[in-house]
Design a binder for these strands. Structure first.
Lengths: 327, 327
DNA sequence: TTGTACGCGTTATCAG
DNA sequence: CTGATAACGCGTACAA
């Protein structure tokens, strides 16, 4: 490992001078600058990031805490975030919390000790008190957070309304909902949106709502028994795409054709939803934009912009595919 | 931020003593130890990881370089790796290289400057020379690497043979192959295995092999034209699961039933393959085991075990589901 | 315009 | 058993 001292020696200047040309600050004579640059090249010198971190109390690193990278929603997010961060010279540490508060705390602890410059987090449980202790640039993702920390998420209620109203539009009269875990804010909101939109015409029917745990296996089972108990159901709004995939299986197993017998809308628009058969009509979250926005927010916070914008919820949009009839 | 000095002052000892109790080395009187421990608790002191790194030239961090976390094969891998690393006190930096050598080099450079203790990498292009320059614990993943670096991957030729021989067993006479990019070692090997197994009985027919680029869209298009040009094809071995999904779509569009008219086997056994309809028969790579093995190898390398085991290729196994007929 | 010297927070060596 | 102190590699007052 070659250090700044080696370069200084080689260029016959002091480390200070080398440091100056390295960081482009302070005055430095053009000729000596050239000398230094040459030495740097010749020795293939790369400044040591750790030493730099220690001094500057920053690491050009951020933490990304998500429940589980295996959940298909997150790779897309992670990719966007990593991309923009990388472009800006940051590196990202991946943390899978399993939505476990202790794990979250654990990661936050470690990240802080590594001088990460900020963290992006997807969490349901974030206690006000703890947040303040951090004094660390922090932005929430996918779900609204405490009022002290900006968060990037989409308008789930609106999205759910969109889904249900579209189902109504295309002729569904008995619309069921496969619901995510109510411990997760967006699942609750999607349920709310569903209920709200249903109640505009019909009376809300509680037994048309079944829990699917945001997983396709559970959703499949739930949908099967739903369809058995309520054979007249002709439309389903699934709380996310993965559960919608379960519904597709359920439909096949109970002998229904999608969309002819049963129309289906998911939520998220993860990239597999187009790949399914039938391809899935869904409420599309602008994951790319959201990831970019979150990254920019965090970067801005890191740069020191104390009071940073609290972005409005992103609008989710209806993405029509083959699991619903065309109007 | 409270430092070791604060603790020392508070406990009325020297920083050296605090450091000793922190790291449990060197002798320290039981009573003073208690004092120190109490101070640590009281001040809620956490050692600064960066300072520690600077001194020890290690960071309790590893780099994970993969082509793209959005490729469904990698989240599973990333999750396993992150899990075992986290348990052992390591943190992982996620790097998406897009299989681009320059990006790989870029990341390696950065990682090194951050004193990462090692890196796991999925790459096709790794030049012998460069590797030696690193002097960094390194293990390959998913693909064999140069002979100097241990790598964890499965026996793709064997897996492909397994697939094709099973297709023959269950009555296929005209077996086609959707092929991955030949720049990727495992794609080439899967193709080799296919060819090898085919040639055992029939003569190999080159136009039954079509490129699918490891993507479902391309694979779908390729399969459609394949099935048009060679309507007698009754079995397809897809180079990976994602391409198999494309084949499912192609089959539907060309009016064939899977598995009755066309039998299909994929490769990888990513978790979505069970979710598809029909659920996908595939060659299952033990991703979990592989991730664990790779992690252990890397850890071992990091610990200084100069000559670490070069693991044998993992055996992939046939996972029968509904895209093939039962025997 | 350049160099010296100190600090960032730890750990390890070496006296005591 | 404990305490100074010198690294680790870099950035920046402060002097020159």
């Amino acid at each position: 490992m070659t250090t700044i001292k080696d370069v200084a020696k080689h260029a016959q200047v002091s480390v200070a001078t080398v440091s100056r040309v390295l960081n482009n600050n302070g005055y430095v004579n053009e000729d000596t600058k050239k000398k230094v640059v040459r030495s740097i090249k010749e020795l293939n010198y790369k400044p040591n990031a750790v030493a730099r971190s220690l001094f500057k109390k920053e690491s050009k690193t951020i933490g990304l805490i998500i429940p589980d990278i295996m959940n298909p929603f997150f790779p897309e997010l992670a990719r966007v975030v990593e991309d923009v961060m990388n472009k800006r010279g940051y590196t990202v540490i991946l943390c899978n919390s399993d939505a476990n508060p202790e794990k979250e705390a654990h990661y936050l602890d470690i990240l802080k000790r590594k001088y990460v410059d900020g963290v992006m987090i997807v969490t349901n449980t974030l206690e006000q008190d703890h947040i303040k202790e951090w004094e660390l640039p922090l932005v929430g993702l996918d779900r609204p957070l405490e009022h002290t920390v900006p968060s990037v998420y989409s308008d789930n209620i609106h999205g759910a309304c969109l889904a249900v109203s579209h189902l109504k539009e295309i002729g569904c009269h008995h619309i069921a909902h496969i619901q995510g875990p109510l411990t997760i804010a967006n699942a609750k909101q999607r349920y709310q949106g569903y209920k709200q939109e249903i109640e505009k015409n019909d009376s809300f029917q509680e037994d048309l709502v079944v829990p699917g745990e945001y997983q396709w296996q559970t959703a499949e089972a739930a949908a099967i028994s739903l369809l058995k108990n309520h054979p007249y159901v002709d439309g389903i709004f699934a709380g996310n795409d993965v559960m919608a995939f379960g519904v597709i299986k359920a439909a096949i197993k109970t002998g229904r054709k999608i969309p002819e017998d049963l129309q289906l809308i998911g939520f998220d628009n993860i990239f597999m939803s187009e790949m399914m058969h039938p391809s899935l009509t869904t409420i599309s979250q602008p994951i790319d934009e959201m990831g970019k926005k979150a990254s920019e927010l965090l970067l801005s916070l890191i740069k020191g912009n104390a009071s940073v914008e609290f972005p409005k919820p992103f609008k989710a949009t209806l993405k029509k595919r083959s699991s619903t009839l065309q109007v």
